[in-house]
Simulated scan of single mutants.
Amino acid sequence: MVKTVGVLGAGQMGNGIAHVFAQFGYRVVIYDIAEAQLEKALATIQQNLERQAKKGAIPEGLVGETISRITATREMKDLAGVDFAVEAVTEHEPLKLDIFRRLDEIVQPGAILASNTSSIPITKIAAVTRRPEQVIGMHFMNPVPVMKLVEVIRGHATSDATFALTAELVGKLEKEMAVSQDYPGFIVNRVLIPMINEAVFALYEGIASAEDIDKGMKLGTNQPMGPLTLADFIGLDTVLAIANVLYDGFKDPKYRPCPLLVKMVNAGYLGRKSGRGFYTY
């Protein structure tokens, strides 16, 4: 039975994951190496809970209750007693593998280790631990408190018990599950990232302006935001990292990242978080 959840990484995804677990009654230990990032995460969770309460989505009293269930730490050893851990660090394979090696040493033997990776193979992550049968992919969508979907990915060795417990958790968080095989990009990013990349190619080749590309996809296919606006929201560095995982994983030229995307990331134009991407913020 899961009572305490560890979250590794206090960025946009990590704070959202900590938020939903704490909101639904789990004790949460959130870990990050940066004190400032932990402080920012707790402030963001507080703001988002207050926004939910203001809209009537949650009772007013749940705000303080939820915050009281969250403990922040800069020491990974403080995750030793968790029943379930979700890694949500940067989408960088060597970093994730290192985190899982260390996490496996620290966390109690019966605990499940999940990764919020959006593209890196779970089998590869599981192989660096001594408990590959207890490793699974649990890919939340951004923003986590709002988005209903969780992609669940079984690695080659993931046990039925690990899958069943993870599926049960998704339900307890009042989210929907989509199950994917363990191939690069899983479901959502396998379809989404090539679409965004193609929109960047359309801009790069001078087919249309960024505004008209986005307007075409918004009004022509009923998407809530255009692909270039979405890329800015996700972060162009993250889009490029996932595009590279697809390209390296399948060795298929159709996944080749657009040179304009590469150039923008090299220039530090990463979208909303840097103040400039395909649009200026």
Rank of each mutant, 00 (worst) to 15 (best):
4 T>L: 10
6 G>L: 07
11 G>L: 00
13 M>I: 05
13 M>N: 01
15 N>P: 02
15 N>L: 11
16 G>V: 07
21 F>N: 13
22 A>Q: 12
24 F>D: 14
25 G>W: 14
26 Y>D: 13
27 R>T: 13
28 V>G: 10
29 V>W: 06
30 I>R: 00
30 I>V: 10
31 Y>C: 03
31 Y>F: 12
33 I>R: 01
33 I>C: 01
37 Q>C: 01
39 E>S: 07
39 E>K: 12
45 I>V: 13
47 Q>C: 01
47 Q>P: 01
49 L>H: 05
49 L>S: 09
51 R>Q: 14
55 K>H: 13
55 K>T: 08
55 K>A: 15
56 G>D: 13
56 G>S: 11
58 I>M: 09
59 P>H: 03
61 G>C: 00
64 G>R: 11
65 E>Y: 03
66 T>V: 03
66 T>W: 04
76 M>L: 14
76 M>D: 04
81 G>H: 06
82 V>I: 12
88 A>P: 07
92 H>C: 00
94 P>I: 05
95 L>T: 11
99 I>Y: 11
101 R>K: 15
113 L>W: 14
120 I>K: 00
124 K>Q: 13
124 K>M: 10
125 I>D: 00
126 A>M: 12
132 P>G: 10
136 I>G: 05
137 G>P: 08
137 G>V: 06
139 H>W: 04
140 F>N: 12
142 N>K: 05
145 P>M: 11
146 V>H: 11
146 V>Y: 15
149 L>F: 12
152 V>C: 09
153 I>S: 04
154 R>A: 12
154 R>M: 05
155 G>E: 13
156 H>R: 13
157 A>D: 15
161 A>V: 09
163 F>V: 10
165 L>C: 15
166 T>V: 09
166 T>Q: 07
169 L>K: 13
170 V>P: 10
172 K>P: 13
172 K>H: 15
175 K>G: 15
177 M>S: 15
178 A>M: 13
179 V>F: 11
182 D>A: 04
182 D>L: 09
183 Y>F: 05
185 G>W: 01
186 F>Q: 02
188 V>R: 00
191 V>G: 01
192 L>T: 03
192 L>S: 03
192 L>N: 03
194 P>G: 03
196 I>N: 08
199 A>H: 04
199 A>P: 08
201 F>P: 08
202 A>V: 07
211 E>L: 02
219 L>V: 08
219 L>A: 07
222 N>I: 06
222 N>P: 10
223 Q>C: 07
223 Q>L: 15
224 P>S: 14
224 P>W: 12
225 M>S: 08
235 G>E: 02
235 G>I: 03
235 G>Y: 02
235 G>M: 03
235 G>W: 01
237 D>F: 01
238 T>Q: 02
240 L>H: 02
244 N>K: 07
244 N>F: 01
248 D>S: 06
248 D>L: 03
251 K>C: 04
251 K>W: 03
253 P>D: 04
253 P>I: 06
256 R>C: 00
260 L>K: 10
263 K>L: 02
265 V>W: 04
267 A>M: 02
271 G>Y: 05
274 S>T: 13
276 R>T: 08
281 Y>V: 10
